[in-house]
Simulated assay, not measured.
Amino acid sequence: METVTYDKKVTGLLVIDPYNDFISEGGKIWDRLKGVAQANGCIPNMLQVLEAARKAQLRVFYAMHHRYRPGDYETWKYVAPIQRAAWGRKSFEFGTWGGEIRSEFAPLPGEIVAQEHWCSSGFANTDLELQLNRHGIHQLIVVGLVAHTCVEATVRYAAEIGYEVTVVRDATASYTEEQMHSALDVNMPNYANAIVTTEQIVASISSL
């Protein structure tokens, strides 16, 4: 995997799904993630990357999953398994604590929250590509949840449409170590130009 250098003018941080339901104690999905997330320091690492990006004055973008609302999916002819699971759990329910961004990760003025994605890719059926292009972004640094679903799907899509992508491996998590291995060591190396640690990415962007 190549060594990537970052150009401050064209580099953005993409934070995927930092909802309370995912990354806060008491969240609907936290118990499934906490083993891996606590083992690799995912949440503090996500925050460290976010703070470093802000300090370096990189553009920050958020790709957020659709927040469940009553009536969602009920009239759909085809519902993907991952959507059926979200429907059953009422994941990230709109108007609830679980559907709010964890407070430490709240977007600051000027940071861009893209339209919510309905399945896994932060690009599919949203304005994320438009927002990135309008802000002149060609390089993406990606952190967030979940490694083998939304992160991987977003990274794949980004590569398909021409972005240079870096994934921060200890600033993401999955439900099992096997899923982490599949995402970070088997699948995403085909699409990400670099897969690095928090320490490495913070050092890189702090010198911009």
Rank of each mutant, 00 (worst) to 15 (best):
N40V: 14
E2L: 08
L33V: 01
N190T: 11
T166A: 09
A203E: 12
E160I: 07
F94Y: 15
I23F: 08
I16T: 05
A158G: 10
S174H: 03
T176M: 06
H138K: 07
M188D: 05
I112N: 02
G26V: 10
S120Q: 09
Q115R: 14
T154M: 01
D185G: 02
R134S: 12
E25H: 09
N187F: 10
I43A: 05
A203F: 04
T5N: 15
W118N: 13
A56D: 12
T166M: 06
E51C: 10
F61V: 01
W97H: 15
G35T: 03
P81A: 03
P189Q: 09
I112H: 02
G12M: 04
Q179D: 14
L128R: 10
D185I: 06
A63F: 00
P81H: 04
A158V: 00
P18V: 04
E160F: 11
G98A: 10
L33T: 01
G99E: 04
L13M: 06
D31R: 15
E152F: 11
K9F: 07
N193P: 10
M180P: 01
W76V: 07
S120A: 12
I195W: 14
E177G: 12
P44S: 08
I137A: 05
C150E: 03
Y68R: 00
T197A: 14
Y175S: 13
P81V: 04
A192G: 12
L50G: 08
F22R: 05
I82S: 12
Q179G: 07
S207K: 15
H66A: 10
K34T: 02
H181M: 06
D31W: 13
Y68S: 01
G99Y: 04
Y73Q: 13
Q139Y: 00
V186E: 11
V165D: 00
T154E: 00
P109Q: 08
P81R: 05
R54L: 10
P18K: 03
D21H: 03
P70C: 13
C119Q: 05
Y62R: 04
H181Q: 13
K9D: 11
Q179W: 14
Y78G: 03
G95C: 06
L50T: 11
A183R: 01
E111N: 04
K34F: 03
A203G: 07
Q179T: 13
A171N: 03
G12Y: 00
Y73T: 11
Q48M: 05
N190M: 13
T11C: 07
E51A: 14
D7R: 10
A39R: 10
N45F: 06
Q83L: 06
K34I: 03
S24W: 13
V168C: 07
E116S: 11
